[in-house]
Amino acid sequence: MPTCPTHPNAHLIEDPRAGDVICPECGLVVGDRLVDVGTEWRSFSNENSGNDPSRVGAPENPLLSNGDLSTHIAVGYGASDSDQSLANAQRKTMNNADRQMNAAIGVIRDMSDRIHLPRNIQDIAAKIFKDILDTKALKGKNNEAQAAACLYIACRKEGVPRTFKEICAVSRVSKKEIGRCFKMIIRVMETSLEQITSSDFMSRFCGNLGLPMPIQVCATRIAKMAVEMDLVAGRSPISIAAAAIYMAAQASSEKRTAKEIGDIAGAAEVTVKQTYKLLLPKASELFPPDFKFVTPVDRLPLNDP
């Protein structure tokens, strides 16, 4: 970082128009030719090609080898032969890793938008993809499956896990292929993820079902106690969460069917019922002491009404 030789403690000012760094005390230019890595807006109103004369350049992207500051030649309707030739030449010379990275970023962004994931999770997923791309360990594997697996890992890392079924639903690859890439990435990157618990899904599942907070608190307690009492050995956290929600809802005025809950949780109706039946014998011990029952424990249904 440059400093003023006369005023070394002065807080320097950047002049983005001139690209200079100036000392506010004496006006000395202590640095020049700064590069603005932000978005560039330009207008080419005198050009005839294209409907929109405004162009915007992308900001610097550290995940690409050239920082994504290269020129991209787009060929529109009515383009000349020379324009087409330039675009073809660019595609041939473009770095293959950058092509994969660009495609993966687009896939991650598209999947994230469809399941409403924030930008920070998209960025983490893209960084994971970049790391695994650099190792070349998954060379030849489906690019979209790798991107989907990276998004699944990013969600787990940020404490907002999504199920494989949810990720699969917004991708064009199979759950099996995503799972295979996930296992390979975990092994290659030598990383560990926090264990998923049923409480990780409670807020989202209950919110999507329109259940109030007391039901969510009750279902969380039921699932936690069921695991501690070893009532649901071998069952997935998603199945446990769905069964706990079903039990809490049946004991309240906010009844929901096993099918409704299964559709939201991504679990089969029969799986929800089977897990619920494992909880039923100890139901009186699973509920919070202050829970306000509408349907008493001894009247909870054995089957979906």
Results as ranks from 00 to 15, higher is better:
V37I: 15
N51H: 09
A18N: 10
I73L: 11
S43T: 12
N88W: 12
I105F: 00
D68G: 13
T93H: 07
V29S: 04
S54T: 10
L34S: 06
P118L: 09
T71K: 06
Y77K: 12
G57N: 01
C26E: 01
A97P: 00
G76S: 14
R42N: 11
D20A: 06
D83N: 14
D20M: 07
W41V: 09
P24R: 01
R119A: 11
I73A: 06
I121S: 10
G19M: 02
Y77F: 11
R33W: 06
N95T: 06
N88Q: 15
N102V: 06
A74Y: 15
R119Q: 15
L117T: 08
N96R: 13
V75Q: 05
I128N: 07
Q100W: 03
V30L: 03
C23I: 02
D110T: 13
L34F: 11
R33F: 09
K92P: 00
V56M: 14
N96G: 00
N120D: 14
S82L: 14
P118T: 12
V29Q: 03
V21Q: 04
A18H: 08
E60A: 10
V107N: 07
S65Q: 11
G57K: 05
M94V: 03
I128P: 00
P24A: 00
P59N: 09
H72M: 09
L117P: 04
P62L: 08
A125M: 05
G106R: 03
D81A: 15
S43C: 09
M111H: 12
V75M: 07
R55W: 05
D52C: 05
A18T: 09
H72E: 12
E25C: 02
M111I: 09
K92G: 01
N46Q: 13
V21N: 01
I105C: 04
A58R: 13
D83T: 11
R114A: 10
A104M: 01
Q100H: 10
N61F: 04
V29D: 04
V75N: 08
A104L: 01
E47C: 02
K92Y: 05
L28A: 08
S80R: 06
S65H: 13
D32V: 03
G67V: 02
G50V: 03
Q122Y: 10
I124A: 14
A97R: 13
L117Q: 12
Q122H: 11
S70E: 13
D36T: 05
V56D: 02
Q122C: 15
L63P: 04
L63G: 00
K92H: 10
V75L: 08
S45Y: 10
M111Y: 10
V56P: 00
R42V: 14
G67M: 01
D113T: 13
H72V: 14
K127G: 02
V75K: 06
G19F: 01
S45H: 11
A87P: 05
L86S: 11
L86G: 04
K92E: 10
D36W: 09
F44S: 08
E25W: 00
V30G: 04
S43P: 00
N88A: 15
S45D: 13
A58S: 12
V37A: 13
D52T: 04
S112D: 05
D98E: 02
V75P: 04
E60V: 12
N48M: 12
P59V: 07
Y77G: 06
C23P: 01
V35A: 11
P24M: 02
W41A: 06
L117K: 08
I108W: 03
S43D: 10
R42A: 13
T71N: 10
